[in-house]
Measured scan of single mutants.
Amino acid sequence: KWEEIAERLREEFNINPEEAREAVEKAGGNEEEARRIVKK
């Protein structure tokens, strides 16, 4: 599940997989929260 979210974030925000994974981890697997983290 987290991998899927990280993949979507990576494609959408054009970030590297590591950044995407970190955002999802910080968000506890919550996609909306992960998006907010990435946008900062």
Score class of each variant (00 low, 15 high):
residue 1 K to E: 12
residue 1 K to N: 14
residue 2 W to M: 07
residue 2 W to K: 05
residue 2 W to D: 04
residue 2 W to R: 05
residue 2 W to Y: 08
residue 3 E to M: 12
residue 3 E to P: 07
residue 3 E to N: 12
residue 3 E to W: 12
residue 4 E to S: 11
residue 4 E to G: 09
residue 5 I to Y: 03
residue 5 I to W: 02
residue 6 A to I: 15
residue 6 A to T: 07
residue 6 A to R: 05
residue 6 A to W: 09
residue 6 A to G: 04
residue 6 A to Y: 09
residue 7 E to R: 14
residue 7 E to F: 14
residue 7 E to Q: 15
residue 8 R to L: 08
residue 8 R to V: 04
residue 8 R to Y: 04
residue 8 R to K: 10
residue 8 R to I: 06
residue 8 R to A: 06
residue 8 R to W: 05
residue 8 R to M: 07
residue 8 R to S: 05
residue 8 R to P: 00
residue 9 L to K: 00
residue 9 L to A: 00
residue 9 L to C: 02
residue 9 L to Y: 00
residue 9 L to R: 00
residue 9 L to T: 01
residue 9 L to S: 01
residue 9 L to H: 00
residue 10 R to M: 13
residue 10 R to D: 02
residue 10 R to L: 08
residue 11 E to M: 15
residue 11 E to I: 15
residue 11 E to V: 15
residue 11 E to D: 12
residue 12 E to Q: 07
residue 12 E to A: 06
residue 12 E to G: 03
residue 12 E to W: 07
residue 12 E to T: 06
residue 12 E to I: 06
residue 12 E to V: 05
residue 13 F to G: 03
residue 13 F to H: 04
residue 13 F to Q: 03
residue 13 F to N: 07
residue 14 N to F: 08
residue 14 N to E: 06
residue 14 N to R: 06
residue 14 N to S: 12
residue 14 N to T: 06
residue 15 I to F: 02
residue 15 I to W: 01
residue 15 I to V: 09
residue 16 N to Q: 11
residue 16 N to H: 10
residue 16 N to T: 15
residue 16 N to F: 07
residue 16 N to G: 13
residue 17 P to L: 14
residue 17 P to N: 10
residue 18 E to H: 11
residue 18 E to T: 10
residue 18 E to S: 11
residue 18 E to R: 09
residue 18 E to P: 04
residue 19 E to N: 06
residue 19 E to M: 11
residue 19 E to K: 07
residue 19 E to P: 03
residue 19 E to I: 12
residue 20 A to H: 00
residue 20 A to M: 02
residue 20 A to I: 06
residue 21 R to Y: 13
residue 21 R to C: 03
residue 21 R to L: 12
residue 21 R to N: 08
residue 21 R to I: 11
residue 22 E to F: 11
residue 22 E to G: 09
residue 22 E to L: 15
residue 23 A to K: 01
residue 23 A to V: 07
residue 23 A to W: 04
residue 23 A to I: 11
residue 23 A to E: 01
residue 23 A to C: 04
residue 23 A to D: 00
residue 24 V to T: 05
residue 24 V to N: 00
residue 24 V to F: 03
residue 24 V to H: 00
residue 24 V to G: 01
residue 25 E to M: 14
residue 25 E to W: 14
residue 25 E to P: 01
residue 25 E to G: 07
residue 25 E to F: 14
residue 25 E to D: 09
residue 25 E to H: 13
residue 25 E to T: 11
residue 26 K to I: 09
residue 26 K to W: 08
residue 26 K to Y: 08
residue 27 A to I: 00
residue 27 A to N: 01
residue 27 A to V: 04
residue 28 G to H: 14
residue 28 G to Y: 10
residue 28 G to I: 08
residue 29 G to N: 03
residue 29 G to M: 03
residue 29 G to H: 03
residue 29 G to P: 01
residue 29 G to Y: 05
residue 29 G to K: 02
residue 30 N to Y: 05
residue 30 N to A: 05
residue 30 N to F: 06
residue 30 N to T: 03
residue 30 N to K: 06
residue 30 N to I: 10
residue 30 N to G: 04
residue 31 E to F: 13
residue 31 E to A: 08
residue 31 E to N: 03
residue 31 E to H: 08
residue 32 E to F: 12
residue 32 E to Q: 11
residue 33 E to P: 01
residue 33 E to N: 06
residue 33 E to G: 06
residue 33 E to L: 13
residue 33 E to R: 07
residue 34 A to Q: 00
residue 34 A to N: 00
residue 34 A to H: 00
residue 34 A to Y: 00
residue 34 A to S: 04
residue 35 R to F: 05
residue 35 R to P: 00
residue 35 R to Q: 05
residue 35 R to N: 02
residue 35 R to V: 06
residue 36 R to P: 01
residue 36 R to H: 08
residue 36 R to Y: 05
residue 36 R to Q: 10
residue 37 I to R: 07
residue 37 I to E: 06
residue 37 I to H: 07
residue 37 I to A: 08
residue 37 I to N: 07
residue 37 I to L: 13
residue 37 I to V: 07
residue 37 I to T: 06
residue 38 V to M: 07
residue 38 V to L: 15
residue 38 V to G: 03
residue 38 V to S: 03
residue 39 K to T: 12
residue 39 K to W: 08
residue 39 K to H: 09
residue 39 K to L: 15
residue 40 K to H: 12
residue 40 K to D: 12
residue 40 K to I: 14
residue 40 K to V: 13
residue 40 K to A: 15
